[in-house]
Design a binder for these strands. Structure first.
Lengths: 228, 228
DNA sequence: AAACTATCTGTACGTACGTATAAAAAGTCA
DNA sequence: TGACTTTTTATACGTACGTACAGATAGTTT
């Protein structure tokens, strides 16, 4: 793996090689993202990623390091953006005064649905990749570092609205909310198969029903007063 | 792959070799089930399954056929039992007179939670395996054949309780319900991580909150009268 | 122009994979 | 016992994998 841009001085340099190198690096990471999203870690080969990126085999190793490193890089690459969107959405909610559980759910889910529905197929691939790994124990250490901090801030807000809820119940409903969203992001084919009608291919089409479902679920599962 | 027991006559035979063969076959399928559940299809090797089953490499091929065939066999092996439990639960509900959405949700989810929580670790592994593949487009053809028929009978009952709901909405809430359940079955580590408290390791511990969540979600997402 | 650096190509190495199969072993039945 | 079937062993084949690296290429700096 090259040592890219550790120093801002370096990144601001006029060396065209670095710019070209980084463009190639992005091509590799994008290709890896698409491949991992479509097939999972083990089923993807470095050669497949190279072909998808339109580069030779060695270039993948040069820019991406080992297969494990490449996977980790892909996972972490977009979290800052996503976490910022969610944090910002929550801040706006709090700045606006009173808010409901539905507002919280929408603030948490909407950024993900939006990026997964954008024209940019890379964000969509990334969302599918996350959907694939979030239900796998072996990746939880990575998911925890990347997503749990922001998730905790949302849990804190739900707790404020439902003071009687236990920590386990709060964590459970957030986990179920995320699972619901990810299942929509990952695939709509079963909905299509079960309904018999062609389903919208954009996760954003499901925003209303998804937010309804999760809001209703949280409200029913968490007692407003001290009960259960 | 051998041609085992197509004829009941054969299975009732006294040939001890067939009995021993079938015992070995079960060991192989059980081992494969555990391996596939823990690591997914691509990451598992035949040699790994052989080691886990305590047999030699060739035996896996003899009893399981190709890797794809083995996977398909494992997937299909337990569906009859599961579908029967769900069908029976629904029949009892209908026999008992009036029932609610909550009753339907519980009837659909409880069998799965129960088998995933039973002492038998094989059922648990199977449940985890299903959780792993149900959100993957490429396995939907298999999932469709195995699970959609019974899912449709539940959808029909929900429709009776919510006549105004569209086919898409019905299919969506059932899919979300399944996703929620499977996320619990597959892993409780994130709940543990987010709550900071050790989580119950049995999916059945989450029956109440899960049924609450899904019931509340369905009720909120599906309008009782013509609206939305 | 020459020295230097970053990037890219082509190829090779050792390993592990899925699968096939010949021969051995174990069990059944006449 | 001896012919038979089923199951198990041991081994081999061809392929594809992740990784490493020497050398070529292209761009930068002095």
């Amino acid at each position: 793996m090259p040592q890219p841009l550790e120093n801002p001085e370096t990144s601001r340099s006029t060396d065209g090689r670095l710019a070209r190198g980084e463009a190639t690096r992005d091509r590799v990471l994008d290709a890896a993202e698409r491949c991992f999203a479509a097939n999972g870690f083990a089923a993807v080969t470095i050669r497949q990623i190279a072909r998808e990126a339109g580069v030779t085999l060695g270039v993948v190793g040069f820019h991406g390091g080992s297969k494990d490193e490449l996977f980790g890089t892909v996972l972490a690459r977009r979290t800052d953006t996503l976490n910022a969107l969610r944090t910002e959405a929550l801040a706006e909610l709090k700045a606006g005064g009173a808010f409901t559980i539905r507002d919280l759910v929408d603030a948490y889910l909407a950024p993900y649905l939006q990026i997964a529905s954008r024209g940019d197929p890379q964000w969509r691939a990334y969302a599918q990749l996350i959907a694939r790994i979030v239900s796998d124990d072996q990746y939880y250490p990575q998911v925890r570092d990347l997503y749990d901090p922001v998730a905790r801030t949302y849990i804190d807000e739900i707790r404020r609205l439902r003071p009687a809820a236990s920590a386990e119940a709060l964590a459970t409903v957030l986990t179920l909310t995320v699972s619901s969203m990810l299942s929509i992001v990952a695939s709509r084919v079963r909905i299509e198969g079960l309904s018999g009608k062609p389903a919208g291919d954009s996760p954003l089409d499901y925003r209303t029903i998804l937010v309804d479902f999760c809001t209703g679920g949280i409200e029913k599962a968490l007692p407003p007063n001290e009960a259960s």
